[in-house]
Amino acid sequence: MNPSVVVLDYGSGNVRSVVRMLQRVGARVTLTADRQAALDADGLYVPGVGAFHACMTALRAASGPELIAQRLRSGRPVLGVCVGFQVLFDGSTEPTSIQPPPPGLGHFAGVVERLDAPVVPHMGWSHVTAGAGSRLLAGVGAERFYFVHSYAARRLLGGRSGGEPTVTTAEHGTTFVAAVEDGPLAGTQFHPEKSGDAGAQLVENWLRSL
Rank of each mutant, 00 (worst) to 15 (best):
G13V: 05
G48Q: 00
S12N: 00
P65I: 03
V25E: 02
V18P: 00
T169F: 12
S17P: 00
T169G: 05
G173N: 10
A33S: 15
L157G: 14
R24H: 14
A178H: 07
E181N: 04
L79P: 04
L210C: 14
T188H: 11
V120R: 08
S209L: 15
G110W: 08
D182Y: 04
L79F: 13
L31N: 01
M21H: 00
V81Y: 01
V119N: 12
A54Q: 15
S209D: 12
V83R: 03
L72W: 02
G183A: 02
F147W: 10
G124Q: 02
I68F: 06
V18T: 02
A153D: 08
T166E: 06
T32F: 04
L39Y: 11
G133H: 10
L44E: 02
G75A: 05
L156I: 06
V180H: 05
R60A: 15
A117W: 07
D40G: 12
W125K: 07
G48V: 05
P77S: 00
G158N: 11
T129G: 12
G183T: 09
A132L: 14
V6K: 00
F85D: 03
R208D: 13
W125T: 12
H172G: 02
L137G: 06
S161G: 07
I68P: 09
L136T: 01
L136I: 04
L185F: 10
M123R: 13
A54E: 15
V148M: 08
F89C: 03
Q70K: 13
V78C: 05
A130T: 03
N14G: 07
R155I: 12
L156G: 00
A138S: 14
Q201V: 15
G26R: 10
P47K: 00
G104S: 07
N205K: 12
P65E: 10
Y45M: 08
S134I: 05
S161R: 10
F176G: 04
G91W: 06
A37I: 05
E204W: 15
N205Y: 08
Q23V: 01
P192T: 07
